[in-house]
């Protein structure tokens, strides 16, 4: 299982701030996971439609599409950062 967290407008569009799901066979990178998540529902598809607008972290470290993922990971998907 993996935990996926959503923040800011990504959460608003997906409609939940966190979900736990099984990692499908063959999904071994963040990029592949995003493609899988977008297939889960129309809301997911809408939220994740433009990966260039998204940023992500794996286990609380910034990640890129090629970053490997594995069961037990905490993956977060969010817009570019706007603190300060």
């Amino acid at each position: 299982m993996i935990t996926v967290l959503y923040f800011a407008w990504v959460r608003d569009r997906v409609g939940t701030d966190a979900e736990t799901l099984a990692l499908p066979a063959g999904v071994t990178t963040l990029g592949a996971l995003l493609t899988h998540l977008a297939s889960l529902s129309p809301r997911h598809a809408n939220a994740l439609a433009r990966p260039e607008l998204l940023r992500a972290a794996v286990n609380q470290l910034f990640a890129r599409p090629e970053t490997p993922i594995a069961p037990g990971d905490e993956i977060a998907i969010f817009p570019p950062l706007t603190g300060g």
Binding site: P79, L81, T82, G83, G84
Partner: peptide, 30 residues
């Protein structure tokens, strides 16, 4: 402060007097 803007996971949502709200977009200049 320059690095905090781009490397710390914070997000701002603006609320307006007409009841609307809007997530602030990241700036290229940051």
């Amino acid at each position: 402060i320059d690095w905090l803007k781009t490397d710390a996971p914070f997000w701002k949502q603006e609320r307006f007097s007409d009841g609307g709200s809007h997530w602030v977009e990241a700036r290229q200049s940051d």
